[in-house]
Amino acid sequence: MEKMVIKDSSYRIKKAKILHTKKMTENEKFFEIVLKSGESLDHEPGQFVMISLLGIGEIPISVCSSPTRRDSFDICVRAVGKVTTCIHKLEAGDEVGIRGPYGKGFPVSILEGNSLLIIAGGLGIAPLRSLINYVLANRRDFGMVHILLGCKEPKELLFSEELEQWNERTDLYYACTVDRAAPDWAGNVGLITTLIPGVDIEPVRTFAAVVGPPVMYKFVIKELLAKEIPERQILLSFERHMKCGNGKCGRCQIQSLYCCQDGPVFNYEQIKNMSEAF
């Protein structure tokens, strides 16, 4: 057997260093990461990277910072498996491997000149934070911006400092709801779908961007269609366990589509007839 190094291999990892971490909730931890080569990650909002802990494994994680910040990028990791649990043990100064960015994110150049209805459920705020911060950095290019946020309990809210800032801004409409309130919770209680009917939008000029747990999509889409947002303008990001990121390994396939290359962001028209998507 002969062996050779492949410089162009799609499995080659870039070295990266963790600059800063923050425990956000019991299960989620925030990491700011910089590529050691000094290059920018150069991602689109909604794209993901493969994060490697050599010897443990590699997992797909959405980038949660805006590409307008070029010197470093952020990820938010929920500890659910072997690799994510190990990533939680990392601190500033530790090294990880990066592949990517991968996939099709939110088509920001197409979104320009439209209003946005951004709907985040739970950890779905992570990829959407990338889009939101991109939009805020280019606020003039967009119409009205609505952010609807939902999660199970107040203690699960991510990026709470930023949420407060968004809440105070006059150039966007922000609403948040929780499924179950805590004693000191003064906000909305109820499913995220309850926030949609009250949003005042002009549907033909509005794009909805939705990211949340799989169970959320069906109900949210129903409300968005009731608002008469065209199917093509409803953008959804799907979670699958990508292993290769190159449209080969088959793990993330939704019928004929590869979530890692054709997605993870799809418009509703593309996938509405794909029962495996939901």
Binding site: M1, E2, K3, M4, V5, I6, K7, S9, Y11, R12, I13, K15, S52, L54, G55, E95, V96, G97
Partner: peptide, 21 residues
């Protein structure tokens, strides 16, 4: 094998292909 790595000091990894004519 896709990658050979060493993690003794930081991370050091190289993408490889094994082949046989």
């Amino acid at each position: 094998t896709l990658l050979e790595f060493n993690i003794a000091q930081g991370i050091d990894a190289e993408a490889v292909v094994e082949y046989e004519p």
